[in-house]
Amino acid sequence: MRVQVFSTLRGALGGRSSVELEHVGTWSVKELLAELEKQFPGFREKLHEGVSILVNGRNIAFLQGLETDVPPDAVVSFIPPSAGG
């Protein structure tokens, strides 16, 4: 599974724009967040209000929110609410 963060959120992954996570079976977004917090302490804190979470390009707001399934081969994106063009 690949987790990617953009622009102002890069600090959340220690300055990296993406990380690969190994796991078998399907997590929920909530479980993924817990795992990220374990690997990158302070991760959740950096997800300030308004950050969108996409699982394979779909905003979890239109799926099952934090209960949305994250399959092992998913790409999960964390997007700050700071975009416009």
Binding site: F6, S7, T8, L54, I79, P80, S82, G84, G85
Partner: peptide, 24 residues
């Protein structure tokens, strides 16, 4: 505002490249 106060000043409009790509 996150867009007019942070995002656009810091990264300009091209910040959207990765965002829109992530949305497919």
């Amino acid at each position: 505002n996150a867009t007019t106060g942070v995002g656009l000043p810091a990264y300009g409009t091209a910040l959207l490249v990765n965002v829109i790509n992530a949305h497919g």
